[in-house]
């Protein structure tokens, strides 16, 4: 696809805002953390060359919300309740989170609730020119520059201007009427070069590589997993913040009025919970904390999933490290696996 020269983000933003609800990572008063919030005023000034900061939580909830209504029962009929989502733009996604969305696009490809939300959503990605704290996207092929096919529009800073790459049909349609000039021909090649430069700026990732190897060669004993599992406080923080985690449970709530009317919802679940697999009989295939921890990391780093998804389940954002109270987030656990091998 052709790429364009954009002289002002403001123009693009306002153009998209005409027909879409705009969301952007923003801070709230009294805190520096970034949250995905409605952005009525236009792009923040964070883009470009400034130090990269990931939003606290990924954009997962826009497409796979923490709680979602599945259907209601009126006493006679089960009525599917697909979400009605107005066209929306997620503006300012980093490559890692985009890879996670691409991963979930695969996973939920037949889920009508996900699709209803996804179809209404345009993804605007930005290349990261610096590593973020704790991030290791380059190790797991998820960044630092936006991957082809993961965004609708890709923005790459060029001094005070931008290289704008429409990366999907939807992206191209969205900017058609802007009538942008084409970008200088050499910019695409320069971008490729620069990506390699930025990748070199990341701190050492030997522990991650060793850990991945050990997980795939299955050289970690049940005892070692069990020791690490003792440190899992089953808070569900890692699975809540992980942009690729997709497990859910369903639950019914009786509605007021008629005695047997009810709604069924699904909500995020976590494979670290002790009862995640426990059956009514009491039989539990993953009774031990170590087994559950092993499962979590297997799902993130096993080669078995690469065939289906074209990548690992981990996109290198490092959010689990930040939120794990037991000290077994991705960096900590991989360092332990490296040290205790």
């Amino acid at each position: 696809m052709k790429s364009y020269l954009l002289d002002s983000l403001e123009n693009l933003f306002q153009h998209l805002a005409v027909s879409h609800k705009m969301f952007e990572p923003q801070s709230i008063p009294g805190s520096e953390d970034l949250h995905w919030l409605p952005s009525p005023k236009g792009p923040t000034s964070r883009y470009g060359t400034s130090k990269q900061v990931l939003p606290l939580a990924p954009a997962k909830g826009f497409l796979f919300p923490e709680r979602e209504l599945l259907f209601r029962f009126d006493g006679q009929t089960f009525i599917e309740t697909l979400p009605e989502v107005a066209p929306q733009v997620l503006f300012g996604l980093q490559s890692c989170d985009l890879c996670a969305i691409a991963y979930q696009d695969q996973f939920f490809r037949q889920d009508s609730y996900y699709l209803a939300r996804r179809k209404a959503t345009i993804l605007v990605g930005f290349d990261c020119l610096t590593p973020c704290d704790g991030g290791f996207c380059s190790t797991v092929d998820a960044g630092p520059f936006v991957r082809d096919g993961s965004a609708d529009l890709i923005l790459h800073p060029k001094g005070n201007e931008w290289l704008l790459i429409p990366a999907s049909e939807q992206g191209l349609n969205a900017i058609q009427t802007l009538n942008l000039p084409p970008a200088p021909a050499e910019w695409r090649a320069e971008r490729e070069q620069q990506q390699a430069e930025v990748a070199k700026m990341f701190p050492t990732d030997s522990h991650i590589r060793t850990g991945i190897e050990r997980i795939n060669q299955a050289t970690i004993s049940a005892e070692q997993w069990q020791r690490l599992g003792l440190q899992c406080l089953t808070c569900s923080g890692c699975t809540s913040l992980c942009p690729t985690c997709s497990c859910f449970t369903t639950f019914d709530t009786k509605t007021e009025g008629e005695s047997n009317t009810f709604v069924r919802e699904r909500c995020w679940d976590s494979c670290l919970y002790e009862a995640f697999q426990r059956e009514t009989s009491g039989h539990n295939p993953s009774k031990e904390a170590g087994e559950r921890l092993q499962r979590y990391w297997f799902h993130k780093f096993s080669d078995h999933y690469v065939d289906e998804f074209g990548r690992y389940g981990c996109i290198g954002c490092g959010r689990c490290e930040e939120t794990c109270p037991g000290g077994i987030g991705v960096h900590s656990i991989m360092r332990r696996l490296e040290k205790e091998s």
Binding site: V18, H20, I28, H35, P38, S39
Partner: peptide, 8 residues
């Protein structure tokens, strides 16, 4: 477009 109510 009008923006939805969403805050932290």
């Amino acid at each position: 477009m009008s923006n939805p109510s969403k805050k932290v």
